[in-house]
Design a protein around this nucleic acid. Structure first.
Lengths: 144, 144
DNA sequence: TCCGAAATATGACAAAAGTCATCTTTTGCT
DNA sequence: AGCAAAAGATGACTTTTGTCATATTTCGGA
């Protein structure tokens, strides 16, 4: 469904959000440990998200990654997925056809539409703020 | 969503089904041309489906691929996807966690569940027989 | 001012997915 | 029996994705 990069990216962001919510910055080695991901790869993904202004980074001693409460509220999974995996997942044909729309549909088009809108709904209604609530309560987890 | 192999596989099968419905066998070069896919790759995928007994092949002159009406009725996209891409899509965690179920869910688990069940519904209710109806009528297409 | 902690940048490497080409086997037809 | 048409099998190659390692930049603090 999503690429590994995207999975790690979402989990990393959620972890950063949890910590930022508690007033702490986190360093990359810590993130990778807590979400069980390869350090360098995770760093690369975070860089993308910094460029896209979803999360902020601070260099030097006591630096690390952090995210504002405002960003947690406004950033949805739809944003993150689009940044990392691109917009194809929201638009592309289920059978891989270049041309596939209401007018010239593939055999799966109309049924696939339902799946996609369910997916869109999930991604657009999931903000970081909402998703970390379970993690903070301990009812959801980010590794294993 | 699906791998290229799976997309080609489904389109190839649909084309074979259309032809078989009209009483004709099709050869691989014809299939590849009509669904706009690479010949050898398509052949490899069809081989998998032959082994899985979804479609039958006949060697030698006037040979080719064919599928029985019975198989068209009973074969769903769920079968095909499972054969080619494996069962992971029906079961794996949206955030890539090894452990993720009702008891120990990831932050996305319950929302993801809806997406997956919509996907399952689509795949399980789509038989080859139903899908080729549009193609035969000319209202849906398999290439471009 | 210098040291060390941190992100950033870059490139090499590995694994998986997708593609291409060639050879082998089977079989109908003459 | 031999030819040709077809699938089947195999391996090499390419591209994409994921991973690792190493240098570079930035900056706080002693």
């Amino acid at each position: 469904m999503f690429s590994k990069a995207c999975e790690y990216g979402i989990r990393a962001l959620l972890y950063v959000a949890v910590k930022s919510h508690g007033g702490e910055r986190v360093i990359i080695s810590d993130i990778a440990k807590e979400i069980d991901s390869p350090v360098s790869f995770t760093a690369k993904i975070l860089q993308q998200l910094v460029k896209a202004a979803v999360v902020t980074s601070v260099k030097g001693p006591h630096g690390g990654f952090e995210i504002t409460d405002e960003k947690m509220k406004t950033t949805t999974l739809a944003h993150i997925v689009e940044i990392i995996d691109g917009p194809a997942i929201f638009r592309s044909c289920g059978l891989g056809l270049g041309v596939c729309d209401e007018g010239t549909p593939c055999p799966l088009h109309f049924k696939y539409h339902n799946v996609r809108s369910e997916l869109k709904k999930m991604l657009e209604t999931s903000t970081l703020e909402k998703l970390i609530q379970g993690v903070e309560r301990g009812s959801t987890h980010l590794k294993l």
